[in-house]
Amino acid sequence: MLPRPSRLTLPSIARWARLNGSSSRAASGGVTLLPTQEPTPEANATLTEEEFSSMIIHGRSIYPPLYHPRTHSVPVAQLQFRAYQHQFLDLYMHFVGHAAAALGIPISRPVYLPTQRSLWTVPRGPFVHKKSQENFERKVHKRAIKAWDADPEVVDRWVRYITRHAMPGVGLRVTQWKRAPLGIGQQMVDSAVGQTRLGSGAVKVKALAEKIVQQELLVEENADTATR
């Protein structure tokens, strides 16, 4: 993989391509030409790293993705990948990293999980060739990525995008954590009270109980007077 150039060159080239793209395409027959002279530092002041990551620049995918720094370290999602061919897995991880960088999602670098290894021994043939056996091996390569400090809607869009463009032969499992709003405890209590009918019906239940007690006391008094 080619090394990523310095920040002094790429933002200036991106800004130049964005501002002068139409004239360059018209002059070169649809091909965008890059500047040949060294850009000045003043041209880099108006283009941030986030803006550069969100721009469409052909050929940028050959470089490593940008990893945005975490702000509050609040986990929002964890992605686990597995495949039999680690080449496909590394390529898909590269694509997922660029997608997260374009959306501004802080993610971790790919974490290499332990490789699952399975072995089988199968006889080459029955009867007289039973002692001749053949061994087979299967390896499942695993990777993991964790995302922090992103809006749930942005994370959902990121997951839908990488799922839509999933690479054949690579499995994906997504685990998302969503934060409940403030006052969720009181809402749960109110919901439980409404389900058990202890809200407005509590007064009616109490009045009915008092009425039953009064009727029982009245029956006992009548029984006592009758025996006397």
Rank of each mutant, 00 (worst) to 15 (best):
R157D: 02
E134R: 08
R143H: 10
W158M: 02
A99W: 06
T163R: 10
V189S: 10
P114N: 07
V159H: 03
W158V: 00
G185Y: 15
I184R: 13
A207S: 10
K139M: 07
L182E: 13
V122W: 03
K142A: 05
L208D: 13
Q215P: 06
Q186Y: 05
A202R: 10
H165Y: 10
A100S: 06
L218Y: 12
L103G: 02
I145Q: 09
R197T: 01
R164V: 02
R164P: 01
P114K: 08
I107M: 07
R179V: 08
Q116V: 03
S191F: 07
A144K: 13
W177T: 03
Q116F: 11
V159A: 08
Q186F: 03
V174H: 04
Q214N: 13
V205G: 09
S191I: 03
L182R: 06
P152L: 10
T163F: 06
T175H: 12
D151R: 11
V140E: 13
A150T: 05
F136W: 12
R157A: 02
Y112W: 13
P106D: 06
R179F: 10
H141F: 13
P114T: 00
Q215A: 09
E153Y: 08
E134A: 05
V219W: 15
K178N: 08
G201K: 05
L119D: 04
V174D: 07
V189K: 13
K146L: 04
A101Q: 06
L103E: 04
L208A: 11
L182D: 11
A226Q: 10
E210R: 14
S191N: 08
T121W: 14
K206T: 04
